[in-house]
Design a protein around this nucleic acid. Structure first.
Length: 266
DNA sequence: TTAAGTGTTGCTCT
DNA sequence: AAGAGCAACACTTA
């Protein structure tokens, strides 16, 4: 689930509630999501420290520590970041819990344990090591930059949108939504996309991602706040085109299950 | 009851 | 270059 909009919602949550509060205790209840760091080392690096800034690149969230270094978080398929004050609100599937000095808690949860938490000395180096392209919502990622990211590839547009090295942040769900809203067939080769379609795709991409953030992607309320006419709730067997064109087409593109409407996406 | 399927990435093989 | 297949995991659906 967690793609760019979801992770941005997590980032804002961390930024609004978790900054400049000393970390009193670190509890690792499932070390399987730790990436090249032991529970003991993670605790030692975080304990007594506080977060001073947050960053996001694609689906990766980074939190800077006051004495240097960054905590890096990736949410895999089922991860989330929660903030809560009442212990009764502790979420299930917690892998790492940070106890803040004000009595509140930050909790990294992961149902399927695919996701990871690590430490990095430098954000730029981390992004380079992860081979991440420009963030799909970065201010500097304008239409010419989008064209440059897609230049030279002949793959399907859906596979290209999901390639984190070309542009970072879009996964299976949002590539389907963006292509549906832009009315472009996900199997179209990037080489066959005309300038008009690329421009429409770019604008649609930015709009869909921003809208999802505004509506609280990644939070429980998002289900009820999905805009009318979106494909997302129909991404299931027996799902139907929101524009009334009947059953959706289900195919495999780039190794992932793709949902599209053969009638309005071409 | 059992098996297949699933929003993530990364690897090997073709 | 790009796609297929697989692996990691644990839960849901058929």
């Amino acid at each position: 689930m967690p793609e760019l909009p979801d992770v941005e919602v997590f980032r804002r949550r961390l930024s609004a509630r978790g900054l400049r509060k000393k970390i009193r205790q670190v509890a690792v209840s499932d070390a399987r999501i730790l990436d090249e760091v032991t529970a003991a080392t993670l605790a030692r690096r975080l304990k007594g420290r506080q977060f001073t800034a947050t960053r996001r690149r694609g689906k990766h969230l980074l939190a800077r520590l006051d004495k240097g270094g960054w905590l890096t978080l990736h949410f895999g398929m089922t991860g989330a970041l929660h903030y809560y004050e009442d212990p009764d609100d502790a979420p299930p599937y917690t892998c790492v819990r940070l106890d803040l000095v004000n009595g509140a808690h930050l909790s990294y949860t992961s149902k399927r344990k695919i996701g990871r938490i690590g430490m990095a000395d430098d954000a730029k180096d981390f992004i380079a090591e992860e081979n991440l392209g420009p963030d799909a919502l970065d201010r500097a990622f304008d239409l010419p930059a989008f064209k440059a990211a897609l230049a030279g590839t002949t793959r399907s547009i859906k596979a290209a949108l999901m390639d984190q090295a070309l542009l970072a942040g879009i996964g299976n769900i949002f590539s389907d939504e963006i292509l549906f809203q832009a009315r472009i067939d996900p199997e179209t080769s990037v080489a066959d996309l005309g300038a008009a379609k690329v421009k429409r795709l770019y604008r649609t991409m930015r709009h869909v991602l921003k809208t999802a953030i505004e509506r609280g992607a990644g939070s429980e309320q998002f289900v009820e706040r999905v805009p009318k006419g979106w494909l997302l709730p129909q991404r299931r067997k027996d799902g139907r085109c929101p524009r009334g064109h009947g059953p959706l087409k289900i195919s495999t593109i780039g190794g992932r299950t793709a949902y599209s409407c053969a009638r309005c996406q071409r």
